[in-house]
Computed example of a mutant assay.
Amino acid sequence: MRAPEFWRADGILPRLLSPLGAAYGAVATKRLLRRPPCAALPTVVIGGLTAGGDGKTPTAIALAGMLAANGEKPALLTRGHGRPLGARPEPFAVDLAKHDSDATGDEALLLARHALTIVGADRAESGRLARALGATVLVLDDGFHSRRLAADLSLLVIDAAYGAGAGRCIPAGPLRAPLAAQLAAADALVVIGDGAAGRDLARRRAKPVFNASIVPDEATAGRLQGARVVAFAGTGRPEKFFDTLKEAGADIVATRRFSDHHRFSEAEISCLAALQQRFCARLVTTEKDAVRLRGSALSFDVLPIGLAFENSDALSAAMAEALERGRLRAS
């Protein structure tokens, strides 16, 4: 899905939908309070404050890199969002040479470029497979709200510009659970960007805060500087990608927004190609969209992005402490 505009600020529609949001929030709060089983490996769990677009996947990739740099062998566990119904139910390791987005979901293919990645709805089984394959630590990029495995460190990711949006739960707003319940369940907050909404929210909470920023790939950004671009994205908040392109110096002449995990039809691919010709511009999209377009005849550029932490040493220390707790717990 794509976040509707009325989720950004309170108004008539959010208020009309607030009873449904309250019911959704009550169920989500109950889930956050349950006691999940512990894995045999230290476990870091990442969650997004809202329903998509906060930056969970870049955070998981950044953490995997930090853990690997410290001598760990991280395994990234994910449900494989975007897979069709009836997809392989048992956990499996992603093989980039063999699997496509239909088999794994789009985000799993991105994760697998950086570390061992296990796709499966049963996190406990996924954790056991990861351990058998040599992993020393588990990183769940979507396990904060489902509470399928206990966390030795739980991180809640917040988009600084978006914050909590309208401050209500789905469908009245973007929150995946009431704000207070989510903040209480997190050990620390990861705030991405320079926006006031998220940073103010974090400052009011007695939680460690790790600030980060999105960093586009330098070589690709250099090639796109000054170029005429038709930008398209199927993510939780496509405007974040468009803003990154603008900051990289691209001249955006048209944009197209699609829902998160969107499967592009032949008609949509043809429309994008027509826009490319009409504006004499380059098509540019996200890494996440690119894996869903693999094998298509569409010609496009991809702008990879990464995450840079302002206080990476403090985050590394927090993870080291969590890993030590996890190993003591499992011994």
Results as ranks from 00 to 15, higher is better:
Arg2Thr: 14
Glu5Lys: 15
Glu5Ser: 15
Trp7Phe: 12
Arg8Ala: 14
Leu13Lys: 11
Pro19Ala: 06
Leu20Asp: 12
Gly21Met: 04
Tyr24Glu: 09
Leu33Asp: 15
Arg34Ser: 13
Ala39Gly: 14
Ala40Ser: 15
Val45Glu: 00
Ile46His: 02
Gly48Arg: 03
Gly52Met: 07
Asp54Lys: 10
Gly55Asn: 05
Pro58Val: 01
Pro58Phe: 01
Thr59Asp: 06
Ala62Cys: 05
Gly65Asp: 09
Leu67Tyr: 04
Ala68Gln: 15
Glu72Pro: 05
Ala75Thr: 08
Leu77Asn: 00
Leu77Pro: 02
Thr78Ala: 10
His81Trp: 11
Gly82Ala: 07
Pro84Cys: 08
Pro89Glu: 11
Phe92Val: 06
Ala97Tyr: 05
Asp106Gly: 08
Ala112Asp: 02
Arg113Ala: 14
Thr117Glu: 13
Ala121Thr: 07
Asp122Ala: 14
Gly127Gln: 04
Ala130Gly: 00
Ala132Tyr: 03
Leu133Ala: 11
Val139Asp: 06
Leu140Glu: 00
Arg148Leu: 13
Leu149Gly: 00
Ala150Glu: 10
Asp152Glu: 04
Ser154Phe: 00
Leu156Tyr: 00
Ile158Leu: 11
Ile158Arg: 05
Asp159Gly: 04
Gly173Ala: 02
Gly173His: 03
Arg176Cys: 08
Ala181Lys: 11
Ala181Thr: 04
Ala181Asn: 11
Ala185Tyr: 01
Gly195Leu: 00
Ala196Leu: 13
Arg205Met: 14
Phe210Trp: 14
Ser213Trp: 09
Glu218Tyr: 05
Gly222His: 11
Leu224Val: 09
Gln225Thr: 12
Gly226Phe: 05
Gly226Lys: 09
Ala227Arg: 11
Gly234Val: 07
Glu239Met: 04
Lys240Cys: 06
Phe241Tyr: 12
Phe241Gly: 11
Phe242Leu: 04
Asp243Gly: 12
Leu245Asn: 05
Leu245Gln: 03
Gly249Tyr: 03
Arg257Trp: 08
Ser259Gly: 05
Asp260Cys: 01
Asp260Ser: 09
Arg263Val: 05
Phe264Cys: 10
Phe264Tyr: 15
Ile269Leu: 15
Ile269Cys: 14
Leu272Val: 03
Ala274Trp: 09
Gln277Trp: 03
Gln277Thr: 11
Arg278Tyr: 13
Arg278Leu: 12
Arg278Phe: 12
Arg278Thr: 15
Ala281Asp: 05
Ala281Cys: 10
Thr285Glu: 08
Thr286Cys: 09
Glu287Asp: 12
Asp289Ser: 10
Asp289Lys: 06
Ala290Thr: 08
Val291Thr: 12
Leu298Lys: 03
Leu303Thr: 03
Leu303Gly: 02
Leu303Cys: 06
Gly306Gln: 09
Glu310Met: 13
Ser312Ile: 13
Glu321Pro: 00
Ala322Ile: 01
Leu323Arg: 09
Glu324His: 14
Arg327Thr: 01
